[in-house]
C-alpha cells in the first residue's frame, strides 16, 4: 500500500470520495455544455437542410465554445489524475506550491458553493518531503475551515513560501473564530501529514508548516 495506510482509513477514503464527486460534477457540467452546443449545431444543420441560410460565423463561434469546453474538461481530468496518483508513494519530494495550486483547483466548486473567492499568490517552487495524500488532505481541510471563517462573498488569499528550514502555506482572510472541533480535526490531520497548523485570529491568519 502507498500513503493511504498512514492516513486514518475512512477519513482518507471520505476525502477521496468528496474530491471524486466534485470532479464528476464538474465533468458532467462540461459534457452538458458540449451536448447543448453540439445539439445546436445539429438543429442548425437540419434547418439549413430545409433551406434556412447558415451563417458561417455562427458555426465558428459554436466550434470555439466546444473547443473551450474540451480544454476545460482536459484540465479537470489532468488534475484528477494528478490527485489520484498522490496515493502512490507514502513519502516523496513534492513542490508545495504546485500541490496547493492543485488542491485549490480541486476545491473550486466547494469555494463557489460557499461564495468565497480563493486567490493563490504568485510564488516560487517550494520543495520538501512529505506524504502527498495526507498533505493534500490537510491543505484541503484548512482551506475549507478558512472559507467558512471568511464567510459568504469574501476572499481568502493563499501564499506558499520557505522560512528558514520550514515550508509554510499561509491563508489570509479569516474573519470568524474557528471552532474547537475544527481545530481538533486540523490537529489530527496535521499529525498525519507531519506538519503543524496554527490559527492566529488577530492576524486573520491560518498557517500550515511542514
Amino acid at each position: 500500500m502507498g500513503s493511504s495506510d498512514t492516513v486514518q482509513g475512512r477519513d482518507g477514503l471520505c476525502f477521496f470520495g468528496k474530491v471524486s464527486a466534485t470532479i464528476s460534477h464538474d465533468v458532467k457540467n462540461v459534457l452538458a455544455i458540449i451536448n447543448e452546443e453540439a445539439g445546436l449545431l445539429q438543429d442548425l444543420s437540419l434547418m439549413a437542410g430545409q433551406g434556412m441560410e447558415l451563417d458561417p460565423e455562427r458555426l465558428v463561434k459554436l466550434a470555439v465554445k466546444i473547443q473551450n469546453q474540451v480544454k476545460r474538461g482536459d484540465t479537470i481530468i489532468k488534475n484528477m489524475n494528478k490527485f489520484a496518483h498522490s496515493v502512490d508513494i507514502a513519502k516523496c519530494e513534492v513542490d508545495f506550491y504546485d500541490m496547493t495550486s492543485l488542491v485549490i483547483a480541486l476545491f473550486t466548486r466547494v469555494a463557489s458553493a460557499k461564495c468565497v473567492t480563493v486567490i493563490l499568490k504568485e510564488g516560487e517552487i517550494v520543495t520538501g518531503k512529505c506524504d502527498p495524500f495526507s498533505a493534500e488532505m490537510l491543505i484541503a481541510r484548512c482551506l475549507e475551515v478558512s472559507m467558512d471563517s471568511a464567510g459568504k462573498n469574501h476572499e481568502i488569499s493563499v501564499e506558499v513560501f520557505s522560512k528558514n528550514s520550514e515550508r509554510v502555506i499561509s491563508v489570509h482572510g479569516l474573519r470568524l473564530e474557528v471552532s474547537e472541533n475544527d481545530l481538533q480535526a486540523l490537529e489530527a490531520l496535521s499529525k498525519n501529514a507531519g506538519a503543524t497548523v496554527s490559527v492566529v485570529p488577530h492576524d486573520s491568519l491560518l498557517e500550515i508548516i511542514f
Binding site: I33, G39, L40, D43
Partner: peptide, 16 residues
C-alpha cells in the same frame, strides 16, 4: 443554472 454557456445553449434550442 449557474453555467452561463449551458443556459444560453439550451435556451436557444428550446426557442427553436
Amino acid at each position: 443554472d449557474d453555467e452561463k454557456e449551458f443556459v444560453e445553449g439550451l435556451a436557444e434550442r428550446m426557442e427553436l
